[in-house]
């Protein structure tokens, strides 16, 4: 049985806004080829104000597809088209307290139905360019289609890069061989299309996933040339021999820095600079992270945007903490506040 939240169950057992809207002036009909589900979204939009006055849906699909459709109507009612279009499929999933990774496409279907309905209202035809594929990474719900887009758009040729761009493989890494196969296949296709040199293309079996897992940490933790100490040593806080370079501009600290002897101001600056480095990655997923307070080795941060309510928030905090520890050499503890 799927691990559905109570809210998903509630919205499935007693869906809100289910049925036909006779007065609809905007209708979106979409389906998910992955599982055969289909959704008809019917809206009544005020032509003057473009406010969505009524919304109803009919869905052929599983429990989460019905719940996602119902959640969508709740989210967009009373909003203007502009406001409604800013709703992402993640918002729909968040509204329901999260969806199992295999079921995220149900929320995508809701998002697409809205796009299609608005296009219909404006007398346009909506074309879908969303491609789905086999679910590759179950930890982060990444499918082959997402990997293909990232690989092609960024000319990725290494599994680590795929993880950095899509998160696939960032969890348990049991999907390594699937990622590898997808990457090799797309690279081969890119070579055939003349988009990639044959020598650059990824070949299956050329990387040992075990080394990858070990390597990924310090590398991810230190995108800039920062002298690193193994965490165990950092916790004992031995003097760091080399100056610490931060961000783009090199802030060479006067004295050889012993981690414990860093002033509070230095520490905060370093933390801020490190957060600035991480920020682009969070922003790419629609989230952000602000420094609220530093008290001893406790770093209080506020997660904003898409990070709020995201199932992966604790992982994000863990990742931020790891990077801060690596950058400062302090046994920091990152605590998120609302």
């Amino acid at each position: 049985m799927w691990d559905y939240t109570d809210k998903v169950k509630d919205y499935f057992f007693d869906p809100v806004n289910a049925g036909v809207l006779e007065t609809a002036n905007a209708v979106g009909e979409v389906g998910a080829i992955a599982c055969g589900d289909a959704l008809k979204l019917m809206l009544r939009i005020d032509p003057e104000t473009e406010v969505i006055e009524a919304a109803k849906f009919q869905t052929f699909g599983c429990g989460s597809a019905i719940a996602s459709s119902s959640a969508l109507t709740e989210l967009i009612l009373g909003k203007t088209i502009r406001e409604a279009l800013s709703i992402s499929n993640q918002d729909i999933a968040d509204f329901l307290g999260g969806l199992p990774p295999e079921k995220m496409h149900c929320s995508v279907m809701g998002w697409e139905a809205l796009q299609a309905a608005v296009a219909n209202f404006r007398g346009e035809t909506w074309n879908d360019d969303h491609v789905e594929g086999e679910l590759v990474c179950k930890c982060f719900g990444v499918d082959a289609g997402q990997i293909e887009r990232a690989v092609r758009a960024n000319r990725l040729t290494r599994v680590e890069e795929v993880t950095n761009y899509t998160k696939a493989g960032g969890g348990c890494l049991t999907c390594f061989e699937k990622i590898e196969a997808v990457l090799a296949e797309i690279n081969a296709a890119m070579v055939a299309e003349g988009l990639l040199a044959a020598a650059e293309a990824y070949r299956v079996g050329s990387v040992d996933p075990k080394s990858l897992k070990q390597k990924a940490r310090p590398k991810a933790a230190a995108p800039q040339p920062i002298e690193l100490k193994p965490v165990s040593e950092i916790v004992v806080a031995k003097p760091a021999p080399a100056p610490i370079a931060v961000g783009g501009d090199v802030a060479v600290l006067e004295k050889p820095v012993a981690a414990t002897r860093m002033t509070t101001v230095q520490k905060i600056r370093l933390i801020e600079a490190t957060l600035d480095e991480i920020r682009p990655f969070l922003k790419r997923d629609g989230g952000d992270c602000e420094l609220v307070d530093v008290d001893g080795n406790t770093v209080v941060v506020e997660l904003t945007g898409a990070c709020v309510g995201c199932q992966m928030a604790s992982l994000t905090v863990g990742g931020v903490q790891e990077k801060l520890i690596a950058a400062t050499g302090l046994p920091l503890r990152v605590i998120p506040v609302k």
């Binding site: 869906p15 009909e29 979409v30 389906g31 008809k40 009919q58 869905t59 052929f60």
Partner: peptide, 22 residues
């Protein structure tokens, strides 16, 4: 069936419903 965009009623042909499949 009350929720289904394909359902038209018992013995009826399915509703003319042709979603855009992604």
């Amino acid at each position: 069936r009350a929720l289904s965009p394909f359902w038209k009623g018992a013995g009826e042909a399915p509703a003319a419903f042709a979603p855009v499949y992604a």
